[in-house]
Design a protein around this nucleic acid. Structure first.
Lengths: 195, 195, 195, 195
DNA sequence: TATGAATGAGTCTTCATTCAT
DNA sequence: CATGAATGAAGACTCATTCAT
């Protein structure tokens, strides 16, 4: 058996899987779990619904894998930002905000919103979400915000509450979707900036 | 021969209908249209699924009626606030924000969010929403915000954009639901206040 | 307890029952068993559906009683005609034909047609129909037709077949209902008359 | 990749659809619309009820398509007979009668009878039936009957009435179904023949 | 008697999933 | 790997029947 062909096939398989996942993320993000039909995903991915099952065993597994990778990505991204040493805390937060708003951060937030609110979420996802809740992000971002408060750029007060509020506002805005215009980052940042 | 007067029966009927509508609002708000099963509503209302159909002809009609009354209520509430002459614009906006956050404004925003984002929304609702979009609220609130800007309490700049941003943030926060803590109004209002 | 009142009440009860039965016959005749809703009957009878159950225990019982009385009536009518001694056989058959066509014989035939063709007919009705099938009417009418053939007025040939044919045609025409114009008896009788 | 050519698949699909339609025709013809359950049809066709919906979108659509093709077939058949030039009018009518009685003309007539008498008929069917009523057949057959009257074979009198009567009798007989023996064509034709 | 609210079994329809080709 | 026919569990909705008033 030709080894190279095999690897190529695996490569193709992996790429196709990613392509399907991207299509699926958008569909789930917009329509919810129950509102998303497997046929909608297969159509969005340009394949037959039967083929979907060569890549994912079930709707549940597909959704679970999307949530998993969303959490992983976000964790990594935030971590990279934290460790980056090229600006003031406020600048970093602005960067974070902009990157979320600019790119397609929306499906990510929408996906998590759905995962948190649906009743028919796979158990595995439920467990994931207990670990990666708001508290998790507060912990990650705490040093950054604390520093911002201490250097006088950001408003004083309970740091955790501030992070929670900002993250909530950001999540909310992202969750809304097309019907609403995304506010400019400057407007959102006013929540944090010391007058 | 009915022991109770016709009017009494109608009264009971109306009250029961409202009670069902309240239960249904919460369920739809949390689970979306497709995610909401009629059995979930009937259970939430404490009745059999069959009885649901004595009060609403179909899931679609039920959902439509909820959206209708949500729009009516919100329009009236805002209008009352506008016409009230007891405070500065900023105080009024604070009151509006608080009343939304405090009471059960959440289901209302969640319902409209769902109505705006689901694909299987009844046509009647689609039409309603074209009329009662963000622009509608911007128009309603414009004088209030304009006045706030002119009296120096609120930040300058494009009034419509400011309203849109504030309303978006508020909507987003309300849509998120239980998983996130509602920020204190003061934090949100910072978006508007002149430093 | 006033005796007279009691009898009056029973009288009223009986009359109401007949009135309901008449309404029900028409509805069943037109819409079939499955197509007939108890609410359609109650509405046709001008009462609430609840009250229906004071007069008939169930839809099945109601339908069964209608079929029973239809069979009884028809048997009696034909018997009366046979025993009547005022005309030639052909005249009698013409009378029979006219009386069926003129009065509301249609619901009767339609009811029996339905009883014969529906799968969800009560067992009691199924049994009744095995006894009162076409053969039953052939037997009843045999002497009349035989006499008509022997006196030269009617076509010769297998008497039973002739009766069956005529009765079938008559039944068929009656079953059709409103969409078709009822043929004049003279036209139908041509099937029987000797040229 | 499909092993069978696209055309073959379509061919199979079409054949299966026809097979289902034939099964459905019989079931509807016997039990009426309300009395026909989709499970009865799927069972008669030897498939699962779910598969039914790959071929027909709904019970209504299925019924409508049956009525459509019944009307088409009958129109074509009659037209062919009219245009055929191989016999006297009476012979043609006899042929028509025989062909209706012999083959499975019964389900066709029963289907139309049901379509005409049910209240829950799809609107499309209602419209079809206004166009293809008795009058339509009278118009089609008028030349044939007129000729038969003029050449002295058939009874005189109002041609349209004669056609109506004959068609009504024929329809009625066909509608009755299994419970009654189909009369020999000769007996029915006596309605038309000049003594 | 009379009404209509209430229940739940039964039917239509959708869609996740399987599998022959 | 790729397709779409096929299945059946689940959910929306109807309606016969019961029962409190």
């Amino acid at each position: 058996m030709p080894r190279l062909a095999k690897e190529q096939l695996e490569q193709i398989h992996k790429e196709r899987k990613i392509q399907i996942a991207q299509a699926a993320t958008k569909v789930f993000a917009k329509h919810g779990i129950a509102g998303t039909k497997m046929s909608m995903i297969s159509q969005a991915a340009g394949i037959s619904h039967g083929l979907l099952y060569h890549y994912f065993n079930s709707k549940d597994e597909l959704f679970t894998s999307l949530v998993k990778s969303a959490i992983e990505t976000s964790t990594t991204e935030i971590q990279k930002l934290i460790e980056w040493t090229g600006g003031t805390p406020l600048e970093k937060i602005k960067l974070l905000t902009e990157s979320i708003i600019d790119e397609d951060g929306a499906p990510f937030f929408q996906l998590l919103h759905i995962a948190r609110n649906s009743k028919d979420v796979p158990d595995e996802v439920k467990e994931l979400l207990t670990n990666y809740s708001l508290d998790f992000y507060i912990k990650q971002l705490f040093p950054l915000f604390k520093e911002g408060q201490e250097n006088g750029q950001m408003v004083e007060g309970d740091t955790a509450e501030l992070i929670a509020a900002y993250f909530t506002v950001l999540s909310g805005v992202m969750v809304l979707g097309d019907g609403y215009p995304l506010p400019r980052p400057e407007l959102l940042l006013r929540i944090l900036i010391k007058p």
